[in-house]
Amino acid sequence: MASSSSSSLSRVVVKSSDNNLFVVNKKVASQSQLLKQCIDNMEEKGTNDVILIPLSNVTSNILTLVLEYCEKHADFADDDNNNQELKQWDHEFLKKFDYATLNSLTMAADYMVTKSLLNLCCQFIADSIKDLTVQQIRQIFDIKNDFTPQEEADIKNENAWAFR
């Protein structure tokens, strides 16, 4: 990271909701549009201090994962999402999580505006729920069934073939 000419910041400190601090390289942090926006704003103001960005919605467990993803992806160009090595890494990265972690990771990606991670998590979730039953899907998304049994049966009957 030798000559980042005019920009003065090389690192930022990100604080998780459970008050853990993470020192993050600027290039890595820029994978998140939220963090990038904060850095850009501070640079405009001409601050030379290390800035602290609190993320009140993201726990340190999840933040660690988001930053692991950002670190890997910072090594590749923006248009490199089709790179085979990266694709393989993404898949290995996601497949070890349970749904609760995936959910939290997805929310963090949405909150931190990390589009490629959001898309990746959601594709992974979509691929894994596409053959599940309605009840299993409700459990995964923690959704309460607000249909009466009759209403649910009627909706099912509209497209009964899709349930076979």
Binding site: L118, Q123, K130, T133, V134, I137, K144, F147, F163
Partner: peptide, 21 residues
């Protein structure tokens, strides 16, 4: 992000998940 990535057969089942869905 999620429902748009599902095939229609799955979507027709997902209509049963909740009134919102």
């Amino acid at each position: 992000e999620i429902l748009v990535k599902l095939p229609v057969r799955s979507l027709l089942r997902c209509r049963c998940v909740s009134k919102l869905w």
